[in-house]
Nucleic acid binder design. Structure first.
Lengths: 238, 238
DNA sequence: GATTGTGAATTATTTCACAGCT
DNA sequence: AGCTGTGAAATAATTCACAATC
């Protein structure tokens, strides 16, 4: 039995390659850690709220406070991508929003194929937030003959055989896997072969994918267990 | 505007207090980091599979491989709680499963109140995995008059006013918040006041709760954005 | 006067390497 | 011989502190 060295899940694929940090060549992003990247999403959301409130500037202290982060952390995170703030004033909200959108890759539209039209799939489909944020569901796949052919919004549920066809025809960039654990690995293999390079996986198993594919797991059971662990006092001394 | 120092979300509440690590007093758990705690859930799941396959022992190498973790990491994680393995043989599957269940706090039943009977709430309710793992939904709350009074399995959907009553009557330990972002903070305040000490939050906002309450966020939009960031090449040099 | 940007210090987490059992 | 348990080393992430700037 061999050790499994290449980690394809997102935490690992975030900081790949280069052991030399190649520091501070301002203007132009460098290696960004996974936690930092996730915090950027929080900042963007908070900034969008501020923009809606017509706020012109915001200090690192206030923005960080809204995100539950501390101020130096936020400043450091943003400084990875440039100097957006004005000393003495804070960050210009209206300018920073599009810059962050650009950095996070949400200034363009992403085409998503949803595999699995069960409860979770349906909940995700209805979740309007995606569309707002530029994630467009261009195909829904299910193997249940009852569901095939039904229309969800603009798309018609396709049978499993149409998975690859839908991905290539619609040019899907991203797949959401809302299928049973027993099928998830097989589906992952197929979507990858069809050209998808990022997967949001709701099945509670580790997907084995090539190193150039990013996987993000949403494991609700694990989240509950983490809470049980805290409630049970697992973090404390006996 | 003041800095927000106390972080109640789970990542922070995991490693609270004690700056002195008070090291290796074997037999009895010590401070456990958030990532380590989450890995324990992965190990448990893999071990349960192995138990189902009637495997007697498993090496750190194989178990770690199945979880996408490396072997020394796994050994170190387990060693935080004791010495479960036999040198030269590996870990005894049948013994380790209940020990890990105990450590993770999933050997007992946890009583859960589900707030929000919309798409996400319904998907969660149907998600049989919870019950298997000891999370029993003892109450469902919604404010939609259409839904109030409907029966979901053994429970009847209660109106919003019944939130506190349900929590105390049913002795709920844990709340799942599947409500719109605009209501999440208010609901969080109420469940905490009613005695809940752990929250699984699906609303894309940061909940402000007292420091003795654990919050775990499931933020699907953020997960998608993290994938977009990788697809857009955000982690790489220009 | 306020607030950013960032090297340096600190703290946390992971990995290594090997002694110690079975 | 094989594999665990664990200090020590290495790496990563966060926080601090303060000079630079508006």
């Amino acid at each position: 039995l061999k050790e499994k060295p290449p980690q394809h899940h997102i935490c690992e694929s975030f900081h790949k390659a280069s052991p030399t940090p190649s520091k501070h060549v301002r203007n132009g992003p460098r290696k960004v850690s996974d936690p930092a990247a996730r915090r950027l999403s929080l900042y963007l959301r908070a900034l969008e709220e501020l923009a809606a409130e017509e706020r012109e500037t915001v200090s690192s202290l206030e923005l960080a406070g809204r995100c539950g982060i501390n101020a130096p952390q936020l400043r450091k995170d943003l400084s990875l991508f440039g100097s957006f703030g004005k000393r003495g004033f804070g960050y210009p909200v209206a300018e920073l929003v599009p810059r962050l959108r650009e950095i996070l890759g949400v200034s363009r539209e992403w085409r998503v194929v949803l595999v699995g039209a069960g409860r979770i799939g349906a909940a995700l489909f209805e979740h309007g937030e995606f569309r707002e944020r530029g994630f467009l569901i261009v195909g829904v796949i299910d193997r249940d003959p009852e569901k095939i052919g039904r229309r969800w919004g603009d798309v018609t549920i396709q049978p499993a055989e149409e998975l690859e066809g839908t991905i290539t025809r619609e040019g899907a960039d991203l797949a959401i896997l809302a299928v049973p654990a027993s099928e998830a690995q097989a589906v992952a293999g197929r979507v990858v072969k069809a050209g998808v390079r990022a997967i949001l996986n709701f099945a509670p198993i580790r997907l084995d994918v090539p190193p150039n594919v990013a996987v993000n797991d949403v494991n609700i059971g694990l989240e509950l267990e983490a809470l049980a662990f805290v409630l049970a006092g697992g973090t404390e001394a006996p």
